[in-house]
Simulated scan of single mutants.
Amino acid sequence: MNDSGLTIALLGPLEVRDGGAPIEVTAGRLRSLLAALALSAGRTLPVERLAQVMWGRDEPVNVRRSVHTNLTRLRGALGSAAVRTVPGGYRLDVAPDAVDVLRFRRLLAAAGRARDAATEHLLLRRALELWRGSPFQGVDVRECWEAESAYLLELYLGAVERRVDLDLACDRPREVIAELRELAVRHPLRESLWARLLVALGRSGRRAEALADYQRLRERLADELGTEPDARIRQIHTELLRADALPRSVTPTTAGPSPPTVGAFIGHVIDLGPTTPLRGKTDTALRPPASDPSAVVLMWVSAATSAKDRAGR
């Protein structure tokens, strides 16, 4: 690997730096080319895959020559040693941690393997700090990145929810309310966010506000989906109505088996009672069954894509 200090950030607007100094990659196809190479940092990508992300179905007549021409231009921006020609294709010669998406995945996988909740919380926080906005901003041929962006968003929201669970288990409800409210507004039909918001409000002495939010959620679900809030949220609502009880979240009845599904990852809720200590071990639904973080990510994205397809039908 090179020691140039090259870093590529894709979790938000595209940013490329070399030793901290910004590098401008302005051409749309070069940005798509760089994004594809970055997501496979240290691994070989064939010419056909690179052509797909640059041109989609409108490939040029001479694909190999056109890919080579664009790679020469990319080397001019990044440095001649950054992109290597290897048997079978090309490789971006940087460490995976130099790419924020790959670092995010690695930190999530490490959090899932953490043996104590404090370590898990720290790793999740470090992973979430990498986000600066919607993934792949400024990268052309958007359809190439839609599935990848959707799955990264699922992982992000799931990581936020898991980290919030740990915050609430440490009796820090006030610290998460603003964040949860912002996310609930941006994702108004994501009931798992609302569940945590209602718990945090109730645990902060803001029951009236929590009850008003529950009613707004109930009306929105009825208007847009024709459904009621799920059983977990209805139980929280019942607890909010009781003056002698603090709201507690409910562990999902469909805990994900190994390998984990997206639902198992983002739906996992620990006991949020006021005396709940941080647990010494994490839930097995969050533990990757394989040592390769990429394998775990592929399982999560596969589940996310299937869920998205079902929702679209």
Rank of each mutant, 00 (worst) to 15 (best):
V99W: 09
G42C: 01
R172M: 09
E148C: 02
I8Q: 07
L14V: 07
L298Y: 04
M1G: 07
A117Y: 04
H237E: 13
L74H: 00
T238C: 08
T69R: 15
L241P: 02
L37M: 01
L39N: 05
A27R: 14
R248A: 10
T275E: 13
L152N: 06
L298S: 13
E143D: 12
H187K: 05
L193N: 03
R91A: 14
Y156A: 11
A311W: 11
L10N: 00
A36N: 08
A109K: 04
Y151P: 01
A159T: 10
Q215K: 12
V94W: 03
E175V: 09
D18Y: 01
G273C: 05
Y151A: 15
G28K: 06
R29Q: 15
G226V: 07
D93M: 08
R186K: 07
E143V: 11
A290F: 09
V250Y: 03
R31T: 00
R279L: 15
S80M: 06
T284P: 00
E228V: 10
A231K: 09
A178T: 15
A231G: 14
T227P: 01
V53T: 11
L189K: 04
L74S: 02
D18H: 07
G88V: 11
P252T: 08
E154D: 13
P257S: 11
V199F: 02
P135S: 12
S4D: 15
E239W: 12
A255H: 02
A245Y: 06
G267V: 06
G256M: 03
L6N: 03
A110Y: 01
A98F: 09
I266D: 14
L39Q: 09
R220M: 14
G267C: 06
R43L: 06
S40T: 10
I236V: 13
M1H: 13
T238Y: 13
A27N: 13
L11D: 05
T251P: 04
W131H: 11
E120P: 04
Q52W: 05
A222K: 11
A51F: 00
L50C: 06
